[in-house]
C-alpha cells in the first residue's frame, strides 16, 4: 500500500449542447488501494470544498455488474486493466506522477449529458426491438421440460454476461455496437427458447442498431479487448451468420 500523486485532465461539459474542454486537476496522496471511482470521489469532495462544480460521472453498484460506470482513461475504455469496469479498476495500476486523461465514452449514439455522464438509451432501444423471448407471465412449461446441454447453457451465459456498459462502442474506431447486439442475439439463438423468433430478432435488432447511428463493424477487435466481461467477437461472427440466414429467407 502506498500513496501516489496524480495529474488529472478531465473532460468538462456543462450540457449536451454546450462546448466542452479539458480541465486539469492535481490530486495528492491517493492511496493505491482506492478504486478509480473513489479517487474521483476524493476529487469531487475537494472541488466541492473549493466551491467548484464537482465532476458528474455515472456509477451505481461499484462492483462491476450494473454497467453504469465507464470513462475512457488515457484512450482506453475502463482504463488500463483488463476485464474490469472502471469501478473495479484500482489505483495500484498507476504510478506516482502519472497524468490521466479522462474522457466520456464517445459515440454519435451516446450523447454527453454532462462531463463524463452520457446517455446510452440507444442500447435499450436495441433490446426493445427484439432482445427477448415473447412469453407472457404464466403458463410456461416446467423448467426441466426444456433440456439444455450444459455446454450450450455455458455458451449462452458467456454471451448473456454483457452488462451493457458501452465500452465496446466507446473503443470501436467506428463506434459500432456489434458486440452488444451480438451478445443478446447469440444468447437467445443458442437456447431452444429463442428459436421461434430467431430470424426476426436478428433482422429487427440489427435494423435498430443501424438506425441509432452506430458505425459499421470492420472487425477491429477493440471491443473484445476492452470488454469488462470478456464477451468474445465469436458472438459477432454468430450474429453475422444469423443475419445472413435471416435476410436470405425472411428479410
Amino acid at each position: 500500500m502506498s500513496d501516489i500523486d496524480l495529474n488529472l485532465q478531465i473532460w468538462r461539459q456543462k450540457k449536451s449542447d454546450s462546448p466542452g474542454a479539458f480541465e486539469t486537476y492535481a490530486l495528492d496522496k491517493i492511496s493505491t488501494e482506492m478504486s478509480f471511482l473513489e479517487m474521483l470521489d476524493v476529487l469531487n469532495e475537494k472541488l466541492t470544498k473549493q466551491g467548484l462544480d464537482p465532476v458528474a460521472f455515472d456509477h451505481d453498484c461499484r462492483e462491476g455488474i450494473c454497467g453504469m460506470c465507464g470513462t475512457v482513461v488515457n484512450g482506453v475504455a475502463h482504463g488500463p486493466e483488463k476485464e474490469v469496469t472502471l469501478c473495479q479498476l484500482h489505483m495500484r495500476n498507476f504510478k506516482d506522477g502519472d497524468t490521466l486523461v479522462i474522457e466520456p465514452f464517445r459515440s454519435r449514439a451516446f450523447p454527453i449529458r454532462k462531463d463524463l455522464l452520457i446517455d446510452r438509451s440507444a442500447f435499450d432501444r436495441i433490446i426493445q426491438s427484439g432482445g427477448y423471448v415473447s412469453v407472457n407471465t404464466g403458463g410456461t412449461p416446467d423448467g426441466n421440460a426444456i433440456p439444455i446441454p450444459a455446454q450450450t447453457a455455458e455458451l449462452a451465459m458467456d454471451a448473456a454476461a454483457c452488462i451493457g456498459c458501452g465500452a465496446c462502442v466507446a473503443s470501436c474506431p467506428n463506434g459500432a455496437a456489434m458486440l452488444f447486439t451480438s451478445a443478446k442475439v447469440s444468447q437467445l439463438c443458442l437456447l431452444p427458447q429463442g428459436q421461434t423468433e430467431r430470424k426476426q430478432r436478428a433482422l429487427d435488432m440489427v435494423a435498430t442498431m443501424d438506425k441509432e447511428g452506430f458505425g459499421n463493424c470492420t472487425n477491429e477487435r477493440e471491443c473484445e479487448a476492452v470488454c469488462p466481461k470478456s464477451i468474445s467477437i465469436r458472438n459477432i461472427a454468430r450474429l453475422n451468420r444469423e443475419y445472413l440466414m435471416a435476410a436470405l429467407s425472411e428479410g
Binding site: T140, G143, P149, A150, A153, A160, Q187, L191, G194
Partner: peptide
C-alpha cells in the same frame, strides 16, 4: 423458475 427459463435465462445445467 419456469417463467425465467421460458424467457431464456441461462441457468446452470447438468450435463
Amino acid at each position: 423458475i419456469d417463467q425465467c427459463v421460458a424467457q431464456g435465462v441461462p441457468f446452470a445445467r447438468e450435463y
